[in-house]
Simulated assay, not measured.
Amino acid sequence: MRAFTDERDWAKFHDPKSLILALVGEVGELAELFQWLPADEAVQLAGTDPLRRRAGEEMADVLAYLVRLADVLDIDLAEAAMKKLENSAERFPAADFRGEAPEKA
């Protein structure tokens, strides 16, 4: 992402606020694809084109902006995700929460 950005001289547009707004916009586009689908049919419908292709495109946009934001903020996204998962495992032990949604996260 950094090389792609640098080749186009776009870094000047990639301040954290602008990247977050772009990320939110892309999440909105992904949400729009599923907004009015019946919840019990969403997985099945998303398994075939054109929804599968469009969802993949929007998810790729979300990932690209998230990766770029992590780069700009100098955050190791993989490390942050692993730490978050470890913390969640401690807060919500499988033995206590299997099949149960936490009342407060």
Rank of each mutant, 00 (worst) to 15 (best):
D49A: 13
R91S: 12
V62G: 06
F34D: 00
R91I: 03
G56D: 00
E58R: 10
V24S: 07
A95T: 07
D74K: 02
V27M: 12
A55H: 01
A42I: 03
V62I: 14
E103R: 09
A39T: 03
D49T: 06
A70D: 01
V24R: 14
L45M: 14
K83C: 08
Q35M: 10
L85S: 12
S18V: 04
E57Y: 10
A42S: 13
E79V: 11
P16M: 02
G47W: 01
E32K: 15
E58I: 06
V62A: 05
F4V: 06
A42K: 11
G28Y: 02
L30Q: 02
E79C: 08
R91T: 07
E57S: 09
G28C: 02
L51I: 07
I20C: 13
L33S: 00
D74M: 01
L21I: 06
A55Y: 00
I75C: 04
L51Q: 03
A46F: 03
G28E: 01
L63S: 04
W36E: 13
N87K: 14
R8Y: 05
L73V: 12
M1F: 05
L77C: 01
F97Q: 08
K83N: 14
L73K: 13
A31E: 12
A3Q: 14
L30N: 04
G28F: 02
E103Q: 10
D40L: 07
K17D: 13
D9E: 13
G25I: 06
K104S: 10
F4M: 10
F13H: 12
L23E: 04
V27C: 13
A95N: 09
E79D: 15
Y65C: 10
Q35G: 01
D40Q: 09
Q44P: 03
T5Q: 08
S18I: 00
K104W: 08
E86D: 14
D6S: 09
L21D: 10
E7M: 13
L51D: 02
A39Y: 02
E103L: 11
R8S: 04
L45V: 03
A81F: 07
S18P: 02
L30V: 04
Y65P: 02
L63Q: 12
R52V: 01
E100M: 11
A31Q: 11
E58S: 03
G56M: 00
A60F: 11
A22L: 11
A64W: 15
A60T: 08
R53H: 14
A80Q: 09
Y65I: 04
D96N: 12
A64L: 13
R98F: 12
G25F: 05
V72H: 00
E103G: 11
R54W: 06
A89H: 12
H14F: 12
G25D: 13
R91D: 09
A11S: 14
L77G: 05
L30D: 05
A95E: 15
K12P: 01
R54E: 12
